[in-house]
Each structure stands twice: as C-alpha cells, then as structure tokens.
C-alpha cells in the first residue's frame, strides 16, 4: 500500500476541479469527446479554479474513516445496515473481515454472514484443519463498505447513467433507470455492489444518504460501539473527521487501481486486499 493521495486538501481540489471533475474518470468516447478539460484555454482553467474555490466554503463533502485498530468485530454495523436499508439476505452493503495470522505465515480471512452473527462461535472459521490447534500470532478486524471513490469505475461503466455521484461525493444508484446489467458489479474492485434480487437493480452502500441529509449519522456509524467508524464533512476543518484525517496516517484499499476512494482506513495491513 502506498500513501494515499488525500482528495480533500486544497491543492488536490484544484486538480479535481479542472481535470477529474470534468471527466478524469472518462474513457473511451469520453476522453475523445467529453473531456473538455484537455481542450481548455488557460483562462478557462482559472475560471474553473475560482468557481471551485467558492464551493469549498459552502459545499459539504462527506468522508468516511474506518479505524481498524478499534474494531471489535461485534457486527453491529452490518446488522444495523441490513435493518436500515432492507438489504436482502446473502448480500451486504457493509461487512467485517476477520484476519488471523499464524506462525507459519498462513493468513486466514473470514467474514461469516458478513460478520453479522459475530465471530466467536463456530461455524465461523474457514481454515485448514491443521491450523485449528495452532495459537495465532496476530489478528484484527477490518470493516468494509463502499469506498465512494472519486474516480469510480462503477459510474464509469454504467451504460445508462443510472449510477451517479452527488455534490457531496456520495455514489448512488437510480433505481428507476438501472437496467440491471451488472456491469457496475463487475467493475467495482471492492465487491461493494450487488444486484438486488428483490428489485433487480444494482444496489450498494449509500453512506445512508437518506439519514445524513437529515443530519443523522449513517446507521453503521451510529451503531458502532467502538468508534471504529467516523463519518463527517471533510470540507469543514472543524469536523471530527477532518481532525482525524489531519492527525492520522490513512490508507485506502487497492490504491494501485487509481479509483481514489473517499473511505479511508487507519491501521490497514498489507494482507488486507
């Protein structure tokens, strides 16, 4: 894992405003016909910059930090998410992974029912039988959810414009226009998306958009007893998440894919893929 680029600092934002926002994620036809940023004259860039700067003060940009060092693997987040969002059985908008390291270098990863039933009792472990008697050397939990990437592969590939990003940086699905082709499910490197068998459309974590726009916290964040999940407005320097981002070294998942996730992690391990 390399040190991730912070998408929210001001210099980054200038870059965002001029290139990425106008189609940094675009490819194929997009890079030929839509990405006007490449064709812009210097004064246009200056205008775009000025416009972007005026948006910093008023615009809310959400961010999410997962502090894996605090997670106790209780599964409250995954249960709350299921109840809040009516997630069908067999699918998860958020889940917890359990990593256990053995002396011989073996790493065992589990997420039984996404961690909703807890981790302590069998049958939870999907591991070689010979390891069952061995005392592990290290272990931790990693909660996962949609990364709400800045350069989202899922929005890029949606053929009909049913996946989109709000001004706050939240990636959503338009349930009325989605054709249910599943291309976004294939394109998400993190397994965050699924085709909902009840509605036959793509579905995913919304960072509880219906809650956060009403001033509430996402259900998973509210239910976390260990403060392992932090959600807030990263464009507000006084917010808790801004403080955490300013005082911690954070990482993102699969940074080499260049999707620039807005969900960032504290205490990731190289074994976490």
């Amino acid at each position: 894992m390399t040190t991730p680029r912070s998408p929210d600092d001001v210099s980054r934002r200038e870059f965002l405003g001029t290139v990425a926002k106008t189609g940094g994620q675009s490819f194929l036809f997009g890079s030929l016909f839509v990405n006007t940023a490449l064709l812009r004259l210097p004064q246009d860039v200056a205008t775009a910059k000025a416009k972007q700067e005026t948006e910093i003060g008023k615009g809310v940009i959400y961010g999410f930090v997962v502090d894996t060092t605090k997670c106790i693997g209780c599964g409250s987040c995954a249960r709350a998410c299921r109840a809040e969002n009516n997630v069908p059985d067999g699918y998860n908008r958020t889940w917890i992974e359990q990593y256990t390291f053995y002396p011989n270098g073996e790493v065992v990863v589990n997420s039984p029912v996404g961690g909703e039933a807890g981790f302590a009792e069998p049958p939870t472990r999907n591991m070689p039988a010979e390891l069952e008697k061995v005392q592990p050397v290290r272990g931790f939990f990693v909660p996962k959810l949609c990364n709400h990437c800045i350069d989202t592969p899922c929005i890029q590939v949606c053929p009909v414009g049913a996946s989109f990003k709000t001004d706050e940086g939240v990636v959503l699905v338009d349930k009325e226009r989605c054709v249910g082709c599943g291309y976004c499910v294939q394109a998400c490197p993190f397994g965050s998306r699924y085709l909902n068998p009840d509605t036959n459309v793509a579905d995913k974590c919304t960072w509880c958009y219906h809650r956060v726009t009403k001033g509430l916290l996402p259900a998973c964040v509210q239910s976390c007893p260990a403060e392992a999940r932090i959600f807030g407005n990263v464009s507000d320097p006084a917010s808790k998440i801004s403080h955490i981002l300013a005082t911690n070294r954070v990482q993102v998942l699969k940074s080499y894919l260049g999707t620039r996730p807005r969900t960032r992690y504290i205490g990731l391990d190289s074994e976490v893929i």
């Binding site: 414009g161 989109f164 709000t166 509880c208 259900a219």
Partner: peptide, 25 residues
C-alpha cells in the same frame, strides 16, 4: 431532469434522500 447536473436523473438524489430513517437513535 436527466442530464441537468451530470449524466443522471437529478430527482434520483431526492428519491434516495426521501427514504425514512429506520434507526431513530
């Protein structure tokens, strides 16, 4: 309202935001 603010249906944002929170706190 499709394409008003990007390549999507603008009111889809409001649709999503309109869902009723189930956890009351």
């Amino acid at each position: 309202d499709f394409g008003v603010k990007g390549h999507f249906r603008l009111s889809a944002i409001a649709d999503e935001a309109a869902r009723e929170p189930r956890h009351i706190g």
